[in-house]
Amino acid sequence: MDNLRDFFKKGDVLLLTLCVCANLFGIALVYSATRYDPALHSYPLKQAIFLCLGIVIYIVITFVDLEFLLEKWWKVFLVLGLAIILLLLPFGRDDGTGNRSWVFLPGLSTGFQPGEMAKLAYICVLAWLINHQRSFGVSRFTSLLKYAGLTMLFAGMLAALSGDYGMVLVYLFIFVIMAWVGGVQKRWFLGVGIPLVAGVILLWNFVLPHTKFWTDYRIMRFRVVFDHSLDPLGRGWQQSRSLLAIGSGQITGMGYLHGKQTQSALSQNLPARHTDFIFSVCGEELGLLGCCVVLLLLFAIILRCVWVSRQAKSRMSAYIAMGIAAMLMIQTILNVGMCLYVAPVIGLTLPFFSYGGSSTLTLFVAMGMVSGIKMRPLPSWLKDRT
């Protein structure tokens, strides 16, 4: 009881409230999105169980002093993160999109995504590394090689073992944001970013069109974004239906449980409606107003993570909170962009709203880490110093 009292006194109850509200909203959307198929009727209940577990995990993780653990055992975080990804070798399974991004361990009826869980270990180790390199120079070339090497190790293993390039993009974005707030000089971002963008433009316009890869399904996912008429019945089908669903909802929507595509018995009408395209379900049934509520909740959670980062007792804790904020930000941008047909379909779910056990539990672990950082603020006598 004393620990619970301490949590409500020092932990981030506001962040937990925001996360629970978002997840409850998500469960309501999942319920609507799974009514068309009796085989999916248990999903809302499962998601509610994941929410209850997530709340317990959030409270427990709040009392974990991440900074102390990282200072002592950062190598354990590194090995554990890589070991989780390596589970894809013997236990990886195709998720239906051509990616082996799911792991089903013997004896377990449900699977999980190693890429989701390994993100938190990656954020923690990268935060420790950036903080450790401050004494040597954050922007030194050797320091940058270490950051990039760590990122390529995680992202490269994930790409090679699963082919989940959407998750790889999340890792890269987290790296950029954490390097930026860690103090890496802007000249490095310009020096790497400008040639990289120029290379992608040249590759896209002058090299790929003359190769066999131009019609590869991964490239087609990007091509249909620039030309919606290119493959409307193939690679552009999911996003075309998504855009139709969101557009038909208009301002107030068709009404909860009354969306034509959401409630259609044909799964092809709105594919992956309870996972990747849950935002489209919201747009069709609750309209622009419902979508604004979803985005405001996610924005508030991200903003709270940034606020905690600003109040953190140390740079390393601040980097962890910002890394988690970056994770939420890029997943939200890419998922909503995917639903609006301005980003390719890359299999990323909408945080807190999409159905998924491993995603939900990972998010609550991450939020618990932020709450733990908030629980250990900088002493008041140090706050007054520059």
Rank of each mutant, 00 (worst) to 15 (best):
D227N: 15
V225H: 03
P209I: 06
G234I: 05
V200K: 00
Y217Q: 10
D227C: 13
R235Y: 12
I219F: 08
Y217D: 00
H210A: 00
V200Y: 06
L233F: 09
F213H: 10
Y217M: 09
W237E: 05
D227G: 13
L196N: 01
P232R: 03
R223P: 09
R235P: 07
D227W: 01
L233H: 07
R235A: 13
P232M: 04
H210W: 03
L202I: 13
V207T: 04
S240F: 11
F222W: 13
I219Q: 05
W204L: 06
H210Y: 11
R218S: 07
Q238G: 09
L208P: 05
R221N: 14
P195N: 08
R218L: 10
V207Q: 02
W204T: 12
L208F: 02
K212H: 12
A198P: 00
D227Q: 08
Q239Y: 02
W204G: 01
M220C: 06
L203N: 07
D231K: 01
V200A: 12
Q238L: 04
W237K: 08
I219S: 03
T211P: 04
L230D: 04
S242L: 12
L196H: 01
D227H: 12
P232D: 14
P232I: 11
P195G: 12
V207N: 05
K212W: 00
H228A: 15
L233A: 08
S242T: 08
G236W: 04
P232H: 06
R223D: 09
F226D: 05
T211C: 01
S240Q: 13
R221D: 06
L233E: 11
L196G: 10
S229K: 10
T215D: 14
S229M: 11
H228P: 09
M220I: 03
H210N: 10
R221L: 08
S240D: 11
W204R: 05
L202K: 03
D231I: 01
T215V: 15
D227E: 15
K212F: 02
L230K: 07
D227Y: 02
R235C: 10
L208V: 09
F213Y: 13
S240A: 15
W237V: 06
F226I: 08
R221V: 07
L196C: 12
R223G: 09
P195S: 06
V224S: 09
M220K: 12
F206G: 06
W204E: 04
P232S: 12
I201V: 14
F226V: 10
V225K: 07
Q238T: 04
P195F: 11
T215Y: 06
F226R: 04
T211I: 03
W214S: 15
Q239V: 15
G236D: 08
L233R: 08
F206K: 14
Q238F: 05
R235Q: 11
F206D: 13
H210P: 01
